[in-house]
Each structure stands twice: as C-alpha cells, then as structure tokens.
Amino acid sequence: MADIVGGADITVAKAPKFRQTRKGQVRKHIINVKVRNEIGVLARIATLIAGKGYNIESLSVGETHEPGISRMTIEVVGDDIVIDQVVKQLRKLIDTLKVRDITDVPHVERELVLIKVHTPTSRARDEVLRIVEIFRGKIVDVSPETYTIEVTGDEDKINAMLELLKPFGIKEMARTGKVAMRRELFAEEAGE
C-alpha cells in the first residue's frame, strides 16, 4: 500500500507481513567425509550430528589410499536445510578435509550384508539358493538348520532380497552400512 510521507510516495507495510521461513523436505541423505585419522574424529562427527537431534542410520569408515586419511559414508535422515547446516559444521571441524552431501549427485552406493536364514528342509534350501543366485549373492556358511548369505548391492537390491528371504525366517543379520562414491562424469556430460 502506498503511503504519502511528506509528499512522496513510499510503499510500506500497513498490515503485518510475514517472512518466508525455512522448511525443508525430510529425507535420507548420504554424506561423504574425508578425515584425518585422529583420535576422537568419529566422536566429534557423531556428537555434531546427535547435537542436531538426528540419528545416524548407518556409518562406515575405512582407510583410503592416502596414509593417515580415512573416508566415512554417513547416512542420516533429516530436513534438507538442517542437513545443509550439518554439512557446513562438519566442514568446520579441524580434522575434516572434505565433506560432501552426494544425495542429489549421480553416485554409486553399495552395502554388504550377511544374513543367516532358517533353512531346515531341502525345499527351503533349494528356494533360498535360487534367490541367492538371482541376486548374485554367495552362501558363505552352512549348517543343518541355516544358510549364511553374503550379498552386496544398493539399497533397493538388498531390500528386495530381504523381502524374499523373510518368509523363511531371518535368524541374524549384519550390515556394513553404505559406502558411496560420486560417479565420474564423461567429458561431454561435464561440459553441459
């Protein structure tokens, strides 16, 4: 609304206005962190994420080809905007060398899972074996009552396989947590 102030028009608020506030989408994020392998690094990173009230879904750490440097892949469900804040704060840590949220960039992700399935009958063993073959898994341990299966893949593949195995009875399961890597773009893609 225009208001006359000392003869000149100035447009001003006459009624309360509202500033756009921040609300992001809540979803799963994958964050890669390159760190110096110092004591307490893991605790620092975990403290920071927990401090935002978020739970880490999975976290995997391992050494890289560079001595003294480790790489973490962290999966965390959270509001896009808060995660952006977490990424900025992770970058501020003295021991982090590189932090990147790769959720929205082309990347490959893999997880390794060990699953112990109840297979008391030969029919169950046959069926489980077939499922394992379809998903290109491996039987890594056998007992009269169980098969232990190793499988790697992305989230969809592993979830699909778990769905199929569930009816047999899953006795135990261990997952490594995701590792993920950005896909290298070809020259023409990168040039776009």
């Binding site: 001003v12 608020a13 309360p16 206005k17 509202f18 500033r19 756009q20 506030t21 804040q85 900025k88 704060q89 970058r91 501020k92």
Partner: peptide, 18 residues
C-alpha cells in the same frame, strides 16, 4: 523469526559459513 524484518532483503557478511 517469521516477523523479523518481513519486508527486507538480507545481505549477510560473516567469517563463519555455518
């Protein structure tokens, strides 16, 4: 916060990206 300077564009200069 949603009634803070509701009409303003904001420039923010700070040493801390976070």
């Amino acid at each position: 916060i949603d009634e803070f300077a509701p009409d303003a564009k904001i420039i923010h200069i700070d040493i801390d990206p976070a």
